[in-house]
Computed example of a mutant assay.
Amino acid sequence: MSWPEETTRTVNLLAAVERKLDGWFVGRGAAVRLMVLAAVCQEHLLLIGPPGTAKTDLISRFCGLVNASQFRYLLTRFTEPSEIFGPLDFQQFQAGTYRVRTTGMLPEADIVFLDEVFQGSSAILNTLLAVLNERSFDNGGTRQHARLVSLFGASSELPDDPALLAFADRFLLRLEVEPVARIRLHELLDRGWQHQTEQLGGGGVNTSPLVSVSDLGKLTRQLRHVRLTDVRSRYADVVAELVARGVALSDRRIVRGLKLVAGAALLRGAEVAQPRDLWPLRHIWTEPGDAEVTKGVLDDHLGAVEDGSGGRSVTALLELAHQRVRQLDDYPAGADGSAVMTTLRVLNQEVLQPLQRGHPHEHAAIDTVRGLINQVTQRLRQTT
């Protein structure tokens, strides 16, 4: 079997969506990759981190590129359900029927972004549970279909309230979003000023849609045709080790993780999942303290996996990068420009370029190497 032409076309267009978003935002490659995966798998993504990390703008531009209707809102303890699901329909209420008008509200949106998602009242979160799980919204005495593809939530931290655990578990994918100014300041300033000048000039970035929500839906249905036979044993080994190390994973997360693996394979145009398609498991942890353990286990299992063309694994390339940067500590700052130049050459030619060629979807690793290159570039400036 080979993928239909329409499937291949949509996969290629989603790769173009990733490239465009990567070009607009600094250090958000991992978030972009997970947003695309979540939309294809119709799962939900939680972004954890401080304000000011471009989460809202990133999601807005993603919606523009996939031609999705969006609903976004900042939740507080005082947010009313009507602000999320719609106001009371007074005309029907006077006729004796309780209904809300959902036009332009969450039940009729394709992509939803809720900032400070755990601040909502129990009435809001309980209603959201049905929307997230069943794509349905109880509107008065009738059950209304919700168009939701994915809900992207943002929070400065995960809740410790046991009452919120069931709701939090609906976010299968999680990512800790950190500010990038410390390691990529100059790139952030350059890119940020470019965006500002575009806005001041009355223009702005062209976000003409590349993919339709209908295209996404058709791609989602193709997930059932991805063969997982070759990775089932390794998947089970990874999950068993995570559980043995105390990583909290519900049965729901373990089972739905297989869909993420199928999505990873489909997004690289493959019909058969391979071990490298296990990368989404890095993001299925439940507790923040488990994030590093989960990443370590996946790195151990995937570190020996080649890119299929005889190249080095992601883990090996990252280790080479960190090793070369650590070697610079043997030189006082400003003492040896030739060593710094050699390190820059290695980082660019022997690490970054092989990563981009052999592992083009490993955005987090690529961002890490770019950050190291920026650090070494700063050191080079001190030698001149």
Rank of each mutant, 00 (worst) to 15 (best):
P4N: 10
E6W: 13
E6Q: 14
E6S: 15
R9D: 06
R9L: 11
R9P: 00
L13Q: 02
V36I: 14
V40T: 06
C41F: 04
C41N: 04
H44F: 13
P50C: 12
G52T: 07
L58Q: 08
L58P: 05
R61Y: 09
G64A: 09
V66T: 03
V66R: 01
V66K: 02
S69Y: 03
P81V: 07
S82E: 08
E83L: 06
P87K: 03
F90M: 07
F93H: 09
A95V: 00
A95Q: 12
G96I: 03
Y98E: 00
R99Y: 00
R99L: 03
V100L: 12
T102Y: 02
G104R: 05
L106M: 09
E108D: 04
I111H: 00
V117D: 02
S122D: 11
L125T: 04
T127I: 03
T127Y: 01
N133C: 10
S136Y: 01
F137C: 02
N139I: 06
T142W: 02
R143E: 00
L148A: 08
L151Q: 01
L151V: 04
P159Y: 09
D161C: 07
A168R: 10
L172A: 03
L172D: 01
R174E: 01
L175E: 05
V177D: 01
V177S: 04
H186R: 12
H195P: 00
L200K: 06
V205K: 08
T207W: 15
S212I: 09
V213D: 01
L216A: 09
T220P: 00
T220V: 11
R221W: 06
R224Q: 15
V226M: 11
R227Q: 12
R227F: 08
R227C: 13
L228I: 15
T229K: 15
V231H: 09
V243T: 15
A244N: 04
A248N: 03
S250L: 09
V255N: 01
V255I: 15
K259F: 05
K259A: 08
V261D: 03
A262Q: 01
A262W: 02
A265P: 02
L266R: 01
L267V: 08
E271R: 14
A273K: 03
Q274S: 14
P280S: 13
P280M: 13
I284C: 12
D290N: 06
A291R: 14
T294Q: 05
K295Q: 12
G296P: 00
V297N: 03
L298V: 01
D299F: 07
D300S: 13
G303W: 05
A304Y: 04
G310A: 11
G310H: 08
S313M: 08
S313R: 04
A316N: 03
A316M: 07
L317R: 04
E319L: 14
A321V: 06
H322D: 11
V325E: 06
R326D: 13
Q327W: 12
Y331V: 12
Y331L: 15
P332F: 15
A333M: 14
S338H: 11
V340M: 10
L344W: 05
R345D: 13
R345N: 08
Q349L: 15
L355M: 07
R357V: 14
H363C: 10
A364K: 11
A364D: 10
A364E: 13
A365K: 09
D367N: 11
L372V: 05
V376R: 03
V376L: 12
V376T: 07
T377H: 11
R379L: 15
L380K: 06
R381W: 09
R381K: 09
